[in-house]
């Protein structure tokens, strides 16, 4: 399988909130990178995971599928998944795939953190 062109940086903001900064391409090949980032972000006290999409350069339908499976995993841990940094294009993709029904989208990191 081809290599993913993506980097994910995890930031633990406090005991209950972590941010995953996504830089690059989100496709099926990003699965391992995304799940590793989530494992790093999630601690026993984590209640909110925030995805930072401001570095997103490409996402296909398999990438959207990855976000769905991450959402299920997050919910099973009784955590919430929030997002910010989506461009107009990716905002439309979230609306089209109806991911915005389940993942709250914020305009900025500070707004997402305030809601966390």
């Amino acid at each position: 399988m081809p290599q993913a062109s993506v980097a994910m940086n995890t930031r633990r903001v406090n005991a209950t909130t972590s941010i995953i900064d996504i830089q690059g391409d989100v496709s099926a090949f990003a699965e391992q990178v995304l799940m590793s980032a989530y494992n790093e972000a999630s601690t026993p006290t984590t209640r909110t995971i925030i995805l930072n999409f401001s570095g997103l350069e490409y996402m296909n339908s398999s990438g959207i599928g990855l976000i769905v499976t991450l959402l299920i995993r997050v919910n099973r841990q009784k955590q919430r998944l929030l997002a910010f940094g989506l461009s107009e294009h990716y905002h439309h993709i979230f609306e089209l795939t109806r991911l915005n029904d389940a993942i709250k989208i914020y305009d900025s990191e500070s707004a997402a953190l305030a809601a966390a």
Binding site: A4, A7, G24, Y58, L96
Partner: peptide
Amino acid sequence: MTTSPIPTNGQPDEQPRDAAFWSGQVS
């Protein structure tokens, strides 16, 4: 940090490479 090679051609102001591949349909 979890990482794989990052593409070097991405520019923040460019239209994303996937823009033409998605449906415009929402309604």
